[in-house]
């Protein structure tokens, strides 16, 4: 035999894993590489250039859609995180009380229903309201995004709360802190990384959404993803690659920060 018997080894698993990692990144890397293509094809390489980044930057539709995406994501993620924090405080660290199970189910409901179904439901509901009120602004998209962001923001906050030592707040109360002071001085500082993680998760989720946005948006309310979806029906130029690359960069940045926050949580 020669080498030591490794109890963890399974024949072929490492090979399949390597194939997976390769297959996961090859398409993404291709997209990024062709974003720098000098030619106007996304298949034939004609040299390095930043022209498609310039073109995207000067494309009003792209800029408008990007700003709209960021607006919606900021508002939705902020509201979702605030209400999710409150909900997490209300649903953790207590003995079961009437309605607790209902709350869990209700808050997680957007995760249970296929996105297309929610999208259709919102299309129907909001089109009624548009007729009644005459309002057709970004409010609909923000409301829809807030709703489906809540469970995502809720998850890390709740996890953080449940891992928190309850006796810390008991200790604060023992040391003359009123409930509000105990929250402000002990609970909140310890919960903060969870809230931050929830905020970023919600932000990415909102930024990425295609289906619900596609159904809810009124004319001229394209977000970056729905703009891109529309472009796929036309002749595709590396401009899409350039937009995707920037988008990718933002996502990676947020995920990296998120990753490090959750790591820090484990170490504490």
């Amino acid at each position: 035999m020669g080498s030591r018997f490794d109890i963890r080894r399974q024949t072929g698993f490492t090979a399949i894993a390597m194939i997976c990692f390769f297959a996961l990144y090859l398409p993404i890397i291709t997209v990024v590489v062709y974003a720098f293509n000098a030619g106007s094809s996304i298949a034939i390489w004609e040299g390095v250039s930043l022209r498609w980044f310039y073109q995207a930057w000067n494309n009003n539709q792209v800029v408008d859609a990007s700003i709209r995406s960021l607006q919606i994501a900021s508002v939705a993620a902020t509201i979702a995180t605030i209400v999710a924090t409150m909900a997490a405080l209300a649903t953790t660290r207590t003995k079961p009380y009437p309605g607790l199970g209902f709350k869990y189910a209700f808050i997680n409901q957007p995760l249970m229903v296929p996105e297309i179904v929610t999208a259709v439901a919102l299309l129907i509901f909001f089109s009624r309201i548009k007729i009644w009120t005459g309002y057709s602004g970004l409010g609909y998209l923000m409301a829809a995004h807030t709703a489906f962001c809540i469970p995502f923001a809720y998850l890390p906050i709740r996890a953080r709360l449940e891992n928190m030592d309850l006796t810390l707040e008991v200790a604060a109360a023992d040391l003359y802190a009123t409930p509000w002071k105990a929250f402000r001085r002990v609970t909140f500082p310890l919960l903060w990384p969870g809230i931050l993680a929830g905020l970023m998760l919600a932000f990415v989720i909102s930024l990425d959404d295609v289906v619900i946005t596609e159904f809810v948006k009124s004319g001229g309310q394209d977000t970056l993803p729905t703009y891109m979806l529309g472009q796929f029906r036309r002749v595709i130029t590396p401009e899409i690659n350039a937009i995707s690359t920037v988008f990718l960069l933002i996502s990676i940045l947020i995920v990296t920060v998120f990753f490090f926050i959750s790591r820090k949580k484990d170490q504490e």
């Binding site: 030592d165 006796t167 810390l168 200790a171 023992d174």
Partner: peptide
């Protein structure tokens, strides 16, 4: 005042 079994010192 109480001294807790796990001390319950504020980690932050």
């Amino acid at each position: 005042n109480t001294v807790f079994q796990n001390y319950a010192l504020f980690p932050h």
